[in-house]
């Protein structure tokens, strides 16, 4: 990987949430929502972040968009001003830098202020950042609405979100995220609330925009089948840790980590004659509250032995062809 190709370089990113505690009392019990997270994302690439609910994938998205402050670690983004670590940016610098990183949310019904028109919603980033004159903004919003498939744009500009269907709203959300030409977009389950017949259109739109506007995505999802179509690479997360990272087809065909294997064999297949292999793991997902210094997957792993219990959580290792796995047993 050429270093100059890397747009986002996440190093040792961690986020701990205190459990209990209060205003005057500090807690020493923490949920390790994200810990020691490393990932490089290339310019123009779409990386899928896959895992079950509670694995920390949404927290990662919020850290990358600085909705949350990281406990430690670096998020370096290669912008026009050079490589900047946004993990510690504050105030005006952070506000300016927000132009480079935007987010598309899961729920098209809740991600827009019901009291603002489509025009006001899409214009918000421009207004807040003070970009362009009013006429320029209007022209740009009109163009972008047409680009995301809301034609004629004039008929959508002054409608309210509740007057649009779910698919149309998600297109507005995409337009809003792209209006200030961000380098990097975090998409948190952008299609999971949409119906199948509408979903494909939104998926295609996001792919087209990635190609035409050179947008780089981190695509957070629980749905591996959607990730297969949307992502160049897939990263699998379990209890705050990355456990496997590979090219999409490589990961789906040759998964190595026992958790990834279990996840893959649990996905229902839209073919009644296809026989899936049995899911081999046991138990359920728990919360990583002050986790023991051992493999996070130890309790559920079919391969686990004493070495998994006695050694700390394994690091991601390249097993060839950029296929990274974090497991002592492989």
């Amino acid at each position: 990987m050429e270093h100059s190709d890397i747009l986002v370089n996440i190093q040792n990113l961690s986020k701990l949430f205190p459990v209990g505690g209060g205003i005057f009392r500090h807690s020493d019990v923490f949920v390790h929502a994200v810990s020691g997270f490393n990932l490089q994302i290339k310019r123009g690439e779409s990386v899928g972040l896959v895992g079950e609910s509670g694995c920390g994938k949404s927290t990662t998205g919020k850290l990358l968009t600085r909705l949350l402050d990281p406990t430690e670690g670096k998020i370096e983004i290669a912008s026009e001003q050079g490589v900047i670590d946004i993990a510690s940016l504050r105030g005006k610098k952070l506000k300016t830098f927000r132009r480079n990183v935007q987010m598309i949310f899961q729920d098209p019904y809740e991600s827009m202020n019901p009291r603002l028109t489509i025009y006001d919603t899409v214009a918000e980033p421009l207004n807040v950042q003070g970009i362009g004159t009013i006429t320029e903004r209007e022209a740009r919003i009109t163009e972008l609405l047409e680009t995301v498939g809301l034609t004629p744009a004039a008929s959508f500009l002054f409608r309210y979100p509740h007057e649009l269907s779910g698919g149309q709203r998600q297109r507005v959300a995409i337009a809003r995220a792209l209006i200030i030409s961000p380098l990097f977009v975090v998409a948190d389950e952008p299609t999971s609330m949409l119906d199948v017949s509408v979903r494909t259109g939104v998926m295609h739109l996001m792919q087209d925009l990635a190609t035409n506007l050179n947008v780089t995505y981190l695509y957070i999802t629980h749905d591996l089948a959607v990730a297969r179509y949307m992502c160049n690479r897939i990263a699998v997360m379990y209890l705050g840790k990355l456990v496997e990272l590979a090219e999409t087809e490589e990961l789906l065909q040759h998964a190595q980590h026992p958790y990834t294997k279990a996840l893959l064999s649990a996905v229902p297949v839209p073919d009644p004659t296809y026989k899936r292999s049995a899911v081999e793991i046991k138990g359920g997902i728990s919360k990583p509250i002050n986790p023991e210094p051992r493999c996070r997957f130890y309790d559920r792993c079919p391969l686990a032995d004493d070495s998994c219990r006695d050694n700390p959580h394994p690091e991601l290792e390249d097993k060839g062809d950029q296929h990274f796995v974090a497991c002592h047993k492989i």
């Binding site: 506000k95 949310f105 202020n113 807040v128 200030i180």
Partner: peptide, 26 residues
């Protein structure tokens, strides 16, 4: 806790902006 508040923050909106354009009108 609605996502549109988070969206406004990601756009770079100040606390004042969020309180007066998103919170209070609702």
């Amino acid at each position: 806790v609605k996502p549109f508040i988070e969206a406004a923050r990601i756009a770079g909106g100040s606390d004042f902006h969020i309180i007066f354009t998103h919170l209070i009108p609702n």
